[in-house]
Amino acid sequence: MTVEVKNIKDQIWSLLSGIPDPEIPVISITELGVVRDIEVNKNGIIISITPTYSGCPAMKVFEDDIISTLTREGHKNIKIKTIYSPAWTSDWLGDEAKQKLKKYGIAPPRKTSEDKNMLFEEDTKKVPCPYCDSNNTKLTSQFSSTACKALHFCNQCQQPFEYFKCI
């Protein structure tokens, strides 16, 4: 990789790091881990992205936001490529991103290696409440306002809250 190409890639990465997730605007699309690769060649730029969930409706917004952000900064011939492998995992969220989620009121995902849920057993591991840190919480539903979150309830502070699912 030439120094020039590396500089362009770094610049693009930093521009993409400024694009918020459309549904959870406190984290960026790079923190979420959907941007997988940046390729710069003489024909233009190819950005590879991967969906968090197959049907994630934010994918189109990601594409539009990436193209408009890079175009605004003078980049041309931008192509978006959707890839499925390796499949997105919540383990790609870094500690900093997890802190931001918690502050925003979404309980961050545990590590997939700690997720030993049996198929048909009740989940005995409690998700700590993002508001009051109590472990006295219960699962309301595995599904919530977006595909990537589950709905829980805190018995301590009597607040419903969302948990970023571990996949």
């Binding site: 969906p51 049907g55 994630c56 309301t140 599904f143 595909a147």
Partner: peptide
């Protein structure tokens, strides 16, 4: 309500898989 959200979330995953 929770089940409404759950069933349509599952529908959405399946639609994404169908699309792929």
């Amino acid at each position: 309500l929770e089940e409404d959200v759950a069933l349509t979330n599952i529908a959405l995953d399946l639609l994404g898989q169908a699309s792929a």
